[in-house]
Design a protein around this nucleic acid. Structure first.
Length: 648
RNA sequence: GCCGGCGUAGCUCAGCGGUAGAGCAACCGCCUCGUAAGCGGUAGGCCGCCGGUUCGAAUCCGGCCGCCGGCUCCA
């Protein structure tokens, strides 16, 4: 057989040759240094046979792809170590069964069915065994088996591997990797010897994980690890993790007194403290202004609705398990509202509508309640009661695309104003064959097409994810990552042909006949709680001036400056700024430190000179002394920055 | 909901079978100071809750509640 090298040279190798055979044929440093290969753009190890005529580039430990190889092998080393760990405890080797063990962003994990729970306390011991396996420098061997033989090997002994083999598509090779008697079904690729793995790894935590991600399957124990090429990279990663934890909105929420979750009130229910509520109100005000500019009208509806309403909308039977149960009294039943749309639809339906009224855009900062599973609750980002910056646009089928694009524009404007640059757009479509959706196929197909067209025409790049649609229609979501790298959905825009149908709402067209409107459900923030949670982490608590709960603190140097500090406070306050004068009996240095820790954007120091000249000494939270300015100038400047919603 | 871990003062944490501790914050007093912590004092605890083991439990065991990390779910 022949393969082609990056320089175009063709090399003749024996049938079934591997990258190792190639490295040996090339000789020289390749023989010693090759650890894998890129074959037709795909990462191969030294053990896997090369396809005829392949383009092959050998890689060494210096290439970035090496990381993938050793992380994958580390997963196997972990599995072997766990097996040894339990053997030391007196269990037979086959008492430890294995699920999958892939490479992930910073390392790897392995799903393990062990005879005893693995706890965090066991990790150092398991790590030590892993290091020993690295020191033993074990060679890895790869081989393939026919499907029948592979199945026979595990039949009746290991249901996980049997299931995994059955999942391998017909025609694909079924390969195994083995080191020192430890064999695992695996597609590869791996490093050729465990001694090549850099010892810069760490097992981080254990978690439960259902086999194949299906809650009907048994739960295995997933051991997570991180691994890098150098000690520095590992150290950096762990340091960054610590830094990220300082941005955690749950921590900052407490430190900056923004919000509270009190078990006595109930889990997943947010108590907004005065400082946090300032931010919340500013965000709402911002959104209200932007929506008014774009032709929205505000409405207000109650927190509950009759069960009949939700039976008509379809919420009740379809999502009963994620709602608080109905409240029944006398012969009526009510539901805490999980969504605002049915109420808005009834506002639409309250009178005969003309095509001339459309698009009708009804907006509400509506608070909804959903019964989220307890294990899923998370600070502000997953709660049981939250306020949506919700609106429903009722329009003609012809208006859908333009309206949809206008909402994309609004959402991008909001993100831009707040400096949120790191997000992705995701279109959620219906999963074929699922019964959790309402409405007919033609409408779904049309809506899915309209969303994609609108997104493309707005120059948005997006991914399409099947099965991510709402039960009544497909949607476009804006997704961001929090400080610790978890993804959260913020803004959402959904096209809905179904609820208008279920509520039988109409408008009178130019032809005098009734027509069915289309609804667009949309919320640029998504949930104000979640959005603010993300925003806290995005700004690390250092909010831009217009959002900062306290915009400026005045620090008098000595007690004799208190009257002037008061005057400065009054001047800023009169301009509508949120300002506090610090008249405590403390040293100026201590006061500055306090306001810095509270992440107040502006500190104004006043002493003899300032009082005399009518100036203030300006200092911002990035520890910069900006100089001395006339009071009136500072007031005007701060006011302009607030009004312009500047990011600084 | 499931698996694992953790609950000690408002916060961060020590103590881990034998009389509940520190720093910060709070409160009181002294100090009046030029850009990140002045000094002294006072108060603050059903050691998450319930039960068990023990002469004796913050400490050991069990259940519950809450939180944390994942998994599943997610309008």
């Amino acid at each position: 057989m022949k393969v082609r090298l990056p320089d175009g040279k063709e090399i003749e190798l024996k049938e079934g040759a591997t990258a190792r055979d190639l490295a040996e044929a090339l000789g020289g440093r390749w023989k010693k240094e090759a650890v894998g290969a890129i074959v037709n753009g795909e990462l191969y190890d030294l053990m896997k046979p090369l396809p005829e005529g392949a383009e092959v580039r050998l890689i060494t430990r210096k290439d970035p792809e090496f990381q993938h190889l050793f992380r994958h092998t580390l997963a196997h080393v972990l599995a072997q170590a766990v097996r040894e760990f339990f053997q030391q405890k007196g269990y037979p080797p086959d008492s430890v069964k294995l699920g999958v063990g892939p490479v992930i962003e910073h390392g790897f994990y392995y799903d393990i069915d062990a005879p005893e729970p693995i706890s965090d306390a066991d990790l150092p011991a398991i790590e030590e065994i892993m290091r020993d396996i690295l020191r033993r420098d074990l060679p890895l061997r790869r081989y393939e088996l026919p499907r029948e033989e592979a199945l026979a090997r595990y039949q009746g002994k290991d249901r996980y591997k049997v299931a995994l083999i059955q999942d391998i598509p017909e025609g694909e090779p079924i390969s195994f990797y083995e080191q020192e008697g430890f064999t695992d079904l695996c597609r590869g690729p791996h490093v050729p010897r465990t001694g090549l793995i850099p010892p810069h790894f760490k097992l981080t935590h254990v978690a439960g994980a259902y086999f194949k991600g299906d809650a009907n399957n048994p739960q295995m124990q997933r051991v997570y690890g991180v691994a890098f090429r150098s000690k520095e990279e590992l150290k950096d990663y762990l340091w960054q993790l610590e830094e990220a934890k300082k941005r955690d909105h749950r921590r900052l929420g407490r430190e900056l007194e923004l919000f509270l979750i009190d078990p006595m009130v109930g889990k997943g229910l947010i108590l907004w403290l005065p400082k946090g509520n300032v931010i919340r109100e500013e965000l709402i005000r911002f959104m209200r202004e932007e929506q008014t500019k774009r032709g929205y009208q505000l409405v207000t509806t109650p927190h509950i609705g009759s069960l009949e309403l939700y039976k008509t909308s379809g919420h009740y039977p379809y999502y009963a398990e994620s709602q608080f149960p109905p409240m029944e009294l006398e012969d009526e039943a009510y539901l805490l509202k999980p969504m605002n749309c049915p109420h808005h639809i009834r506002i639409y339906a309250a009178k005969k509508r003309s095509y001339r009224e459309l698009p009708l855009r009804l907006a509400e900062f509506g608070t909804v309640y959903r019964y989220e599973q307890s294990g899923e609750l998370h600070g502000l980002t997953r709660v049981r009661g939250f306020t949506q910056d919700d609106a429903h646009i009722f329009c003609t089928p012809e208006q859908v695309k333009e309206e949809f694009k206008a909402v994309i524009e609004l959402t991008l404007h909001v993100f831009d104003t707040l400096g949120l640059k790191d997000f992705r757009a995701r279109i959620g479509t219906r999963a074929p064959g699922s019964d959790k959706y309402v409405g007919d196929d033609a409408h779904w197909a049309l809506a899915e097409r309209q969303i994609q067209e609108a997104a493309s025409e707005m120059g948005l790049s997006y991914t399409v994810e099947e099965g991510d649609a709402a039960f009544y229609g497909p949607k476009l979501d804006f997704v961001v990552k929090d400080a610790l790298g978890r993804e959260w959905q913020l803004g959402t825009i959904q096209v809905d042909y179904n609820l208008p149908e279920r509520f039988a709402i109409t408008y009178t067209g130019p032809d005098g006949e009734p027509h069915r409107p289309v609804m667009i459900h949309r919320a640029p923030f998504g949930s104000i709680e979640r959005f603010l949670g993300i925003l806290i982490e995005h700004f690390a608590g250092e909010f831009p001036l217009w959002l900062a709960p306290v915009q400026a603190a005045i620090v008098p140097i000595a007690e004799r400056h208190h009257p002037y500090a008061e005057r400065v406070r009054a001047a800023l306050g009169a301009a509508g700024l949120r300002v506090e004068a610090d008249l405590r009996s403390e040293r100026m240095q201590a006061k500055i430190r306090d306001w810095e820790t509270r992440k107040v954007p502006v500190i104004l120091v006043v002493g003899d000179r300032e009082a005399e000249e009518g100036t203030v000494a300006l200092r911002d939270r990035r520890r910069k002394v900006r100089g001395v300015f006339p009071l009136a100038e500072v007031v005007a400047d701060l006011k302009a920055r607030v009004d312009g919603r500047k990011l600084e």
